[in-house]
Simulated assay, not measured.
Amino acid sequence: MEVVLLRHGTTELNKARKIQGSRVDPSLSEDGRAYAEKAAKNFDASKFDAVYVSPLKRAQETARIFVGPDIPIKTDKRLEELDYGDWDGKSSQEFKKLYPDAFDHRGLLTDNMYKYNKNAETRKQFEERLADFFDELYKKNPDKKILVVCHGVVSRMIVAHYLTNGDISYFDQMENCGLAKLHISNDQTSLVFWNRVLA
């Protein structure tokens, strides 16, 4: 199965450097939508056999921009971003000052977050729901080409699930509207490319 992961376009929360998980549901910003439309001109959605999308608005809007009005999309709640609990929608810069060890050198949250953020979805729970989705997807579509429109940490975790035993620290955050491609089979899963941008 060939899977292309597409991270959603930019929102105002992205620009404000706020934590954006599954409890916040902003639309694309004006410039985020404009960039998605520009990138989508270099994207051929017709080659995919199916399109699956997170139910959150930023992913739904990005998907529709990239695939157009006529290609059907299937929504699956398991593709939602990590649930950051009480940290969702809050300033990552403020938390970085309070809990510097919860962030890595790139400014990405690490598992040290869980020392301070007690009601966030655990990495294990997060990986399990994504693995459940992709296992089911592979059983139904072993020889198909699938587009999955989702989120930054979702993309990192699903690649980590297959390649690094769920350790997302190996993968940087993709750009908004960045693409990754996986080839998934029973024998071997390989990462074809990561963070490809179209505009």
Results as ranks from 00 to 15, higher is better:
residue 14 N to I: 09
residue 35 Y to Q: 14
residue 124 K to Y: 09
residue 51 V to Q: 06
residue 95 F to T: 06
residue 52 Y to C: 10
residue 81 E to G: 00
residue 88 D to E: 09
residue 104 D to Q: 01
residue 120 A to R: 09
residue 174 M to D: 07
residue 43 F to R: 08
residue 131 A to S: 14
residue 57 K to M: 13
residue 138 Y to V: 12
residue 49 D to M: 07
residue 113 M to N: 07
residue 177 C to W: 00
residue 187 D to I: 06
residue 74 K to Q: 15
residue 188 Q to P: 01
residue 195 N to E: 04
residue 2 E to D: 14
residue 186 N to A: 12
residue 170 Y to I: 00
residue 58 R to G: 08
residue 199 A to Q: 09
residue 106 R to K: 15
residue 80 E to M: 13
residue 72 P to H: 05
residue 137 L to T: 07
residue 13 L to T: 05
residue 129 R to N: 12
residue 143 D to S: 15
residue 135 D to A: 09
residue 107 G to W: 04
residue 92 S to Y: 04
residue 151 H to V: 08
residue 30 E to R: 10
residue 135 D to I: 07
residue 92 S to Q: 13
residue 31 D to H: 05
residue 174 M to Y: 00
residue 69 P to D: 15
residue 38 K to L: 14
residue 79 L to R: 06
residue 147 L to A: 01
residue 172 D to M: 12
residue 128 E to C: 01
residue 199 A to S: 12
residue 136 E to S: 15
residue 22 S to H: 04
residue 97 K to I: 10
residue 157 M to G: 01
residue 40 A to W: 10
residue 54 S to W: 01
residue 100 P to Y: 09
residue 28 L to W: 09
residue 164 T to V: 02
residue 179 L to D: 05
residue 24 V to L: 08
residue 137 L to H: 04
residue 195 N to D: 11
residue 113 M to K: 06
residue 104 D to T: 03
residue 132 D to N: 13
residue 75 T to Y: 01
residue 142 P to G: 05
residue 175 E to W: 02
residue 86 D to C: 06
residue 169 S to Y: 03
residue 68 G to L: 10
residue 60 Q to N: 00
residue 134 F to E: 09
residue 92 S to C: 03
residue 14 N to T: 08
residue 186 N to F: 02
residue 141 N to S: 08
residue 76 D to H: 08
residue 139 K to L: 14
residue 188 Q to M: 11
residue 142 P to I: 11
residue 137 L to C: 09
residue 42 N to E: 14
residue 33 R to C: 10
residue 28 L to D: 11
residue 158 I to T: 11
residue 197 V to P: 01
residue 123 R to I: 14
residue 36 A to M: 13
residue 198 L to E: 05
residue 48 F to E: 11
residue 57 K to H: 13
residue 79 L to P: 02
residue 99 Y to P: 02
residue 12 E to R: 10
residue 194 W to F: 15
residue 109 L to D: 10
residue 59 A to K: 04
residue 60 Q to S: 07
residue 89 G to I: 06
residue 180 A to W: 03
residue 38 K to S: 13
residue 44 D to W: 08
residue 11 T to L: 03
residue 181 K to T: 03
residue 37 E to W: 03
residue 145 K to W: 03
residue 34 A to F: 03
residue 109 L to F: 11
residue 165 N to I: 05
residue 171 F to W: 11
residue 134 F to W: 03
residue 97 K to W: 08
residue 110 T to N: 13
residue 166 G to R: 06
residue 121 E to H: 02
residue 153 V to E: 11
residue 114 Y to N: 10
residue 68 G to V: 07
residue 146 I to H: 04
residue 132 D to R: 13
residue 5 L to M: 11
residue 112 N to E: 15
residue 177 C to N: 14
residue 114 Y to V: 13
residue 18 K to S: 03
residue 147 L to G: 04
residue 133 F to S: 08
residue 172 D to P: 05
residue 91 S to R: 02
residue 86 D to P: 02
residue 169 S to T: 15
residue 166 G to Y: 07
residue 63 A to Y: 06
residue 128 E to V: 00
residue 76 D to P: 00
residue 24 V to E: 14
residue 67 V to F: 06
residue 61 E to W: 00
residue 51 V to F: 06
residue 62 T to D: 04
residue 109 L to A: 07
residue 73 I to G: 08
residue 158 I to H: 01
residue 81 E to D: 09
residue 117 N to I: 02
residue 125 Q to V: 12
residue 6 L to H: 07
residue 150 C to V: 05
residue 129 R to H: 10
residue 192 V to W: 00
residue 127 E to A: 15
residue 126 F to T: 10
